[in-house]
Amino acid sequence: MSTLTILRAGPLVTVQDLGRPGQLIHGISASGALDRSAYRLAGALAGKAAGAALEFTSAGLGLRYSGTDCTAGFAGGQFGLTLNGEPRQWPLALNLTDGDVIDITTGPWGNYGYIRFEKQIDCAPVMGSRSTNAVVGLGGYEGRALRAGDELALVPLDGSSVPETIHTVSGQHQLSDPIRVTWSVHADLFPETARSSFISTQFQITARMDRMGVRLKDAAGVFTDANILSLVSDSIVPGDIQILGDGTPIVLLRDHQPTGGYPRIATVISADLDRFAQIRSGRMVRFQPVTVEAAQAALKGTL
């Protein structure tokens, strides 16, 4: 058996895999890695097969590895990484040996990075997944984000893990491309002027971001007077852009509440959701409407 000791943890270091779909009927959203393409790349770098990931945020993570030799893959955004004090190029694969110390620090771009091992992180699957939903205290390591001093055991893979195939990973050069959306369930409740301003205006990503969602700054006041009230709660999907009562737009991510009553104008397409999650606060983002058919074609192109 091998052990990971967390030496330093930025906010929101969590165990994640591809999540627990199928539980919305019980009021549980799927969670899972916010940048799936990066999660997959980390798995491909780790070797023939890999277990669940540690997902970390731009503040990074320090950890010590104890045990028999083990390959690990590191991907997502671009972080700084040292192995026993020696800088390495990101993304990367490392063959870890007993006593290795890894320190990951903020880099030029990206909000979320992933480490995966050719072993499994030893926490019990909850409803088929090791993903942490810290909002409701479910899954992962005690249902919470990791902190300094936590120790996680790594155990052999059970054989259900399959090799990852990678076609595309969101890269820095694509971060300023428009984020494609489809119009959402309440788009028709917004005035035409708000809909056209929504696609002609740039919104700023704010620091108020977590696994539930990302708040945008609506400096142009596109939604200041939107004032749509009294909607019946309805299903939410990751990528939905809801407008709060005060006009603040929020792009909902994988730890979203399963249902909500705020109006939703648009939904980020699946093919662009990984890329969106990696955009740092302070940057501007523009939304571009596409048809559902175009969104589905784009998704097929990433698989």
């Binding site: 489809t182 369930v185 309805d234 299903s235 999907v237 939905d240 939904t267 397409i269 699946s270």
Partner: peptide
């Protein structure tokens, strides 16, 4: 349609 992988029957 609700995004590219879901729909609502309302």
């Amino acid at each position: 349609p609700l995004g590219d992988s879901a729909l609502l029957v309302r």
